[in-house]
Design a binder for these strands. Sequence first.
DNA 1: AATTAGCTAGACCAGTCACTATAATTTTTT
DNA 2: AAAAAATTATAGTGACTGGTCTAGCTAATT
Lengths: 190, 190
Amino acid sequence: MMSSKNDSRENILSAATRLFHIQGYHATGLNQILKESGAPKGSLYYHFPNGKEQLAIEAVNMMARLIEGELREHFSLFDDPVQCIQYHIQFIAKKFDDIENLKSLPVGLMAAETSLFSEPLRTACLSAFEGWEKLYCDKLIQQGYEDTFAKEISTVINSMIEGAITRSLANKNGAPLYLAAESIQLLLKK
Amino acid sequence: MMSSKNDSRENILSAATRLFHIQGYHATGLNQILKESGAPKGSLYYHFPNGKEQLAIEAVNMMARLIEGELREHFSLFDDPVQCIQYHIQFIAKKFDDIENLKSLPVGLMAAETSLFSEPLRTACLSAFEGWEKLYCDKLIQQGYEDTFAKEISTVINSMIEGAITRSLANKNGAPLYLAAESIQLLLKK
DNA sequence: AATTAGCTAGACCAGTCACTATAATTTTTT
DNA sequence: AAAAAATTATAGTGACTGGTCTAGCTAATT
């Protein structure tokens, strides 16, 4: 009856991470998460005693780490930051080739949806953004860009990617993301 | 009992436009819209017989027109597209000085939240985006930018603004938008 | 083996949701 | 003035929500 320790917790968190990031916070009900995870309701409150908000915060943190992993991998492919960032954006864009089966999206929707009503969720999203931006910044500084510029343009790039995701959802294809990838050359022209 | 014709409809639509754009679709209930508008429930379904989705579509269309108005006004202030677009972005950024009393935001949240579950809402959001981008594009072409570049960079700029809004919500201030405004010079460098 | 701790399982709760139905009131048309 | 149309007003509906509760099962400890 009880699977090995922590299976339920991990299943719930995985399902939540996916559903919250595809559908948003308010459109995702706990019963749907439970159904997708196969876990019983009692386990949800046992593992996440502070309820839906706690679950969402942990889902945002998980997504943050996932994207960080992707960024690290993509940034190790090339020395040139333009190429790395373009590669990363194109990687996201490719997910829109099969939009019906989107498995993950960065935390933009969660941030836009929750920042004004949940301070803990806002700060979780902010941390995610800042963590990614630091990776962009480090890569730029490593390749000789000036510190302040690197920091500021990292925020701009991250914003642009989030916005291009939204724009791609409306377009029902990745075209806006591919355009955003192209524009990295302009932003990072030396 | 009955105010002059169409007051209820306009009140409902105004309240809906504000609430949907600040809170998102799923976090906004019809009862809250009614409370803010002062209209009776029967009027809601009388004027919007297809219910919540229809109301949301009309709210998106209304916001699209509002922002178009702002863009036209801002684009008439200067010849230089860089200055116009920066002015427009700074105008949005100023709204974050009093984030508690945000009255409107463009349709990014609605698009991100609804594109995957409502085709009519997705197309309404897409129309909004395309309408704004056309204004950017026209201004750029008028000032000598090449057609294809103007069209593509307009999508990038619009994406960047939407993303910077999301980023500013997480930041709880307009700083990411001010950075986005600065980066327009890079994108539009001739 | 008995006890304790961890976890599962699912019934239950009060409240909210979008929407329906219909009588009543007001406005417009004839 | 009477009739028709437009609009208001509100009670009611079934489904769903996040969360509570508690008995029971399993795993770990004594």
